[in-house]
Design a protein around this nucleic acid. Sequence first.
DNA 1: AACTTTTGTCAAATATTTGTAAAATTTGCA
DNA 2: TGCAAATTTTACAAATATTTGACAAAAGTT
Lengths: 225, 225
Amino acid sequence: MKIWCVEDDESIRDIEVYTLNSTDFEATGFSDAAAFHDALATDKPDLIILDIMLPGEDGVELLKFLKDSPDTCRIPVIMATAKGMEYDKIQSLDLGADDYLVKPFGMMEMVSRVKAVLRRCNPTEVEHLLKAGGLVVNLDEHTVTVDRERIQLTLKEFELLRLFLSHPGIAFTRDQLFNDVWGADYISETRTVDMHIRTLRVKLGDYGKMIETVRGVGYRLEVQA
Amino acid sequence: MKIWCVEDDESIRDIEVYTLNSTDFEATGFSDAAAFHDALATDKPDLIILDIMLPGEDGVELLKFLKDSPDTCRIPVIMATAKGMEYDKIQSLDLGADDYLVKPFGMMEMVSRVKAVLRRCNPTEVEHLLKAGGLVVNLDEHTVTVDRERIQLTLKEFELLRLFLSHPGIAFTRDQLFNDVWGADYISETRTVDMHIRTLRVKLGDYGKMIETVRGVGYRLEVQA
DNA sequence: AACTTTTGTCAAATATTTGTAAAATTTGCA
DNA sequence: TGCAAATTTTACAAATATTTGACAAAAGTT
């Protein structure tokens, strides 16, 4: 896990990087926004610890920049602030910072928060899995297993199942299903969606029953059996 | 959004509840773990603010309890701690608390953190629920529960109930009902609407009595205080 | 009380929606 | 290009929901 620390105070920066490196992270320090921007052009970290007070470009500016770009807006950011800055603290939280540290903070606390934020923001980073009972969809491998048994799904079937599993319990209209999976407007009066639901149900065996039909509406994945 | 505050200090608890309620949340305060457990038996909040130091059962215990049960482990928890408790603070973070507040904390900060955690934990949309007593209509799931028991409604019944629940106490003429649910003018002298009202009443069991007939006009959902 | 109007109830008739199978078409790939 | 798999379409069967009209029951009127 790559962590970048943007902090102008060299001694703080060094101890942050040192601590993180000795805790199985790959930490890199940056003394100002410019150096940080340079690095960002060629690489992306998994988390950023950002001092709110920086020479040149302000930390809040930088946060805004990160959250505005679709490339970087998903990278979690922990803001480091000086004491007695409640207003700025709130401002940065509302700008999309994921947590913050009030200086002076202990290294134990920093590591805890880094871990907590990573856990929170990348719950699937470990493995991109969607589960429901004995049903497991592995998004990385693009595979599906039913009770540890690998089954073969076609693309549409896979995408349908993914959609259902990432919104368990939610009822989708055929329209929505078509929009999400096919990416087009559902106009035709054909049984296309129903057809794929059917093949999916068959391939899922007993778990096929989890896909309930909501008469007059569409389909829903019923969780909890 | 329901928020439950578990805090033994009455003045702190009151101001928390007051602030949250005046910020469009539905906050409820609990002075100890026992009262909280009682409430949890019949309802579930969307977020919990939990004091780490409680009389009787400890806040950390309570957090552990919440995170151990599949029913409650997804409810985000913000821990409130006294100053100078770094060790416990870290412990609670690692137990799965989603954030924490160090006393004394400002109400502005509390609201900011509550919002931030809710944003983080409910990235999708808020659940769209319509409620009246033990009657719950979940628009996303397209489901209806009566005293936590799922019941099966047909489309027309569902739409009728939705219409009533979103305008509690309002009397609708058959004309209006037909317009809203069927999307057409009600001309015929048939018993169509009455028929659906009947089946709905039957399926709702005791709650069926909530649908009152307004003689000469139509129907109304009577809500109890 | 007798009458009128409105609402409740029921089962049959009708209409709609979904499941299924097979055929037609498209797509990806060797 | 030609084949095989995937996808879409068509047609029909099955399941389910909705409507209807006749009549009973209840509520209001005179």
